[in-house]
Amino acid sequence: MPRNGSFAILFNTLVVMFMLAPLVIVCLVAFTPENTLSLPGWTWSLRWFRKVFEHPDFVTSFINSLWLATVSASLAVGLAVPASLAITRGNFPGRQALEGLFLSPLVIPHLVLGVALLQMFARIGATGSFVWLALAHVVVITPYAMRLLIAAMTGYDRSVEHAALSLGASRLTVFRRITLPMILPGVSGGWLLCFINSFDEVTMSIFITAPSTITLPVKMYMYATESIDPMMAAVSALIVGLTAATALLLDRIYGLDRVLVGQR
Rank of each mutant, 00 (worst) to 15 (best):
K51Y: 05
T243E: 03
V261L: 10
G189C: 08
A151T: 11
L133T: 11
F175D: 06
A169I: 05
V218G: 01
F121T: 10
T173F: 08
E226S: 01
G78A: 14
K51I: 06
P230F: 00
Y144M: 13
I108T: 12
L39W: 03
I183W: 04
I150F: 09
L216D: 05
K219V: 10
G90L: 03
R89I: 12
R47L: 11
L260D: 02
A122K: 13
R147S: 13
L135I: 15
L46I: 11
S236C: 03
V261H: 14
R158T: 13
S74E: 07
E161H: 10
A83Q: 04
Y144T: 11
N35H: 04
T215W: 00
T179G: 07
A21P: 00
A97S: 03
G5S: 11
W48K: 08
E99P: 08
I9H: 06
M1A: 13
V218F: 00
N64W: 00
T88D: 14
L14H: 00
V240D: 02
S205H: 01
F53M: 04
W48V: 05
S212R: 07
I239F: 04
M182C: 08
L118I: 14
A8T: 09
L180T: 09
T142H: 08
R252F: 08
S159N: 06
D251P: 03
P93S: 05
A234H: 09
F195R: 00
Y254D: 09
R252D: 07
G114R: 04
V71S: 05
M146R: 15
W67K: 10
T246F: 14
A134C: 15
L238F: 02
A116C: 15
L118K: 06
W42T: 03
I183K: 01
I9C: 10
L85D: 05
G5N: 08
S212E: 06
S188N: 02
S159I: 00
L193H: 06
T243P: 02
I87G: 11
S38W: 03
L28A: 15
L172R: 06
A233Q: 07
A224F: 05
P211T: 13
V187F: 01
L79S: 04
N197E: 12
V240P: 04
L10C: 08
S65F: 02
P143C: 11
N197S: 06
A30K: 03
L238C: 00
M231N: 08
L249T: 14
I141P: 14
L135Q: 09
A122L: 13
D200H: 03
L165K: 10
G186N: 01
A152D: 14
P181H: 07
L172A: 10
F130G: 06
L180W: 08
I214R: 14
S104M: 15
H162Y: 12
S45N: 07
G186Q: 02
M220K: 08
F18D: 03
L133V: 12
F58G: 05
V259F: 11
P217C: 12
R171Q: 15
T179H: 07
V261G: 00
R176K: 12
T60N: 12
A247G: 04
